[in-house]
């Protein structure tokens, strides 16, 4: 078992509400319970093939549609996952809109699973979601993302892979 929440240090704080540190097993359970989850994967995913593979596995195993932000779609087409390109900032806006029909026309989402993003950038997007929606956001990235609802802690690349594997086992 990986301890994925040992290090939750932050450089500066956004303020009053911080992500609940979450272990891979609990993260897996929470994701499995979501009615309409969306996996939001960013372009930093392309910098690490191992993480990319695990992202695909998670989406496939749990049957979660993927919002491919940045240019992450480039490595997600033809991988057997339901992935669509969308700009992350636009996604942030649409997720605030109960009338948005989602990427597939089946309605808005109740959970966003975050992976493969620039820490400073996704923290901003999450800050918007945290303040203006009830959407549950769960970060399984290698950084502790304080503006998510739940997040892994800060992890080395190796520990991050272990955490993702453990999450996959428990889906």
């Amino acid at each position: 078992m990986v301890d994925a929440i040992k290090n939750t240090r932050v450089y500066t704080t956004w303020g009053t509400k911080n992500a609940k540190p979450v272990q891979p097993k609990v993260a897996a359970k929470t994701i499995s319970k979501a009615k309409r989850p969306l996996m939001v994967v960013g372009a930093d995913l392309l910098k690490n093939k191992e993480v990319l593979d695990r992202a695909v596995t998670i989406a496939k195993t749990a049957g979660i549609p993927v919002a491919a932000t940045g240019h992450s779609i480039k490595e997600l087409v033809d991988k057997g996952v339901s992935a669509k390109y969308i700009n992350i900032h636009s996604l942030g806006l649409y997720l605030c809109d109960p009338n948005w029909e989602g990427l597939d026309g089946n309605g808005c989402y109740d959970m966003a699973i975050i992976l493969g993003h620039k820490k400073y950038y996704i923290n901003q997007v999450l800050s918007g979601l945290k303040n203006f929606t009830n959407l549950k956001t769960i970060s399984i990235d290698k950084h502790y993302l304080q503006n998510a609802t739940m997040s892994f802690g800060n992890l080395s690349d190796e520990k991050h892979l272990e955490a993702l594997d453990e999450l996959i086992e428990n889906l």
Binding site: W14, K17, G92, C96, G128, N131, F132
Partner: peptide, 8 residues
């Protein structure tokens, strides 16, 4: 669309 830098 607002993405606050601070909650306060």
């Amino acid at each position: 669309i607002y993405t606050p830098m601070c909650d306060q």
